[in-house]
Design a protein around this nucleic acid. Structure first.
Lengths: 156, 156
DNA sequence: TAAAGAGCTGGAGTGCACTCCAAGCAAGCG
DNA sequence: CGCTTGCTTGGAGTGCACTCCAGCTCTTTA
């Protein structure tokens, strides 16, 4: 079976664990040259998505071979790991692009980057609270159904 | 200023708190007859969304006046509260519709409903864990930026 | 009773985040 | 040399969850 261009249709294991890199076959700095399909394997993102990230300005600047093929580095992998986490926590792509721009502009934007991340952290905290609230409702409802089930069994 | 049909363009406070109903002017059971715009005020959902929910089968069955206008009840408000929580926790609308169907089918579906809710609860728990993991990364990054800021201030 | 305002419908449009397509180049192999 | 495989591009298409529109009816206020 050959490596296909598109993302797998039948989910391989769980695509949920795309946040952090499956850090296995990572090459030492200096010889870190990954093709796009290697990065697909390492990140779980599709090649389409990786190219799209670059097009919209979400990648710091990806190296190319003399024939124009992308060669990703360990640094790119680290960046994609961060992007994956931000995405998983619901940061809009536009905000991530904004953050990427700030990174490209250099150390002068440290304060702005800190503000952006701090605002997002506040968002994430609120969302955790929301989720916990709902968990309580869910527990309550599930208990109701469980009780009803046990009750009807008792009647048999 | 009159009450407009569509959702407010300039966000009133934060539209985030749409999960639970702002339980204020809730009428006693028996006289619980709310127009669509009253429900908009109570839930924070737009009238469009309320009609759309009904169209796709996400509402249990909304009463109508003799001229065809919707009249929502306290029961509908409770349902919308649950829907709001499920939506906030990322349950796809299709799953919520499935749950609504089960509710319409009566007590025979208790077990199925319990399974659906239990699966979602597992989802929510996992998401909380993901968010907490990212929170740690965020803390780390923010600390880095804060340290850098303090360091450069010290140099002045 | 006339005008303004709220509600109704089916269907079209929007924004986000991908996701895919078609056509074409480049490297490796028998 | 030709074939397969992998990578390239711009642009079009998809799915979700709304969001809005046009044209109408109904209700309330002056």
């Amino acid at each position: 079976m050959t490596v296909m261009e598109s993302a797998p249709v039948t989910a391989p294991a769980k695509p949920r664990n795309c946040a952090g890199l499956r850090d296995g076959p990572r090459r030492p700095d200096g010889q870190d040259q990954y093709t796009i399909s290697e990065v697909v394997g390492l990140t779980g993102l599709s090649a389409h998505t990786l190219r799209w990230y670059e097009r919209i300005g979400l990648m710091p600047h990806v190296d190319r071979t003399h024939t124009g093929q992308r060669r990703f580095t360990n640094r790119d992998l680290d960046w994609l790991s961060l992007v994956g986490k931000l995405r998983l926590t619901g940061m809009p792509v536009a905000d991530m692009v904004r953050y990427a721009e700030l990174v490209r502009e250099g150390p002068a934007t440290f304060a702005a980057r800190e503000r952006l991340l701090t605002a997002h952290r506040e968002d994430v905290r609120q969302r955790i609270d929301e989720l916990r609230d709902t968990l309580a409702v869910l527990d309550y409802k599930i208990d109701l159904y469980a009780d009803a089930r046990l009750g009807s069994e008792g009647e048999l």
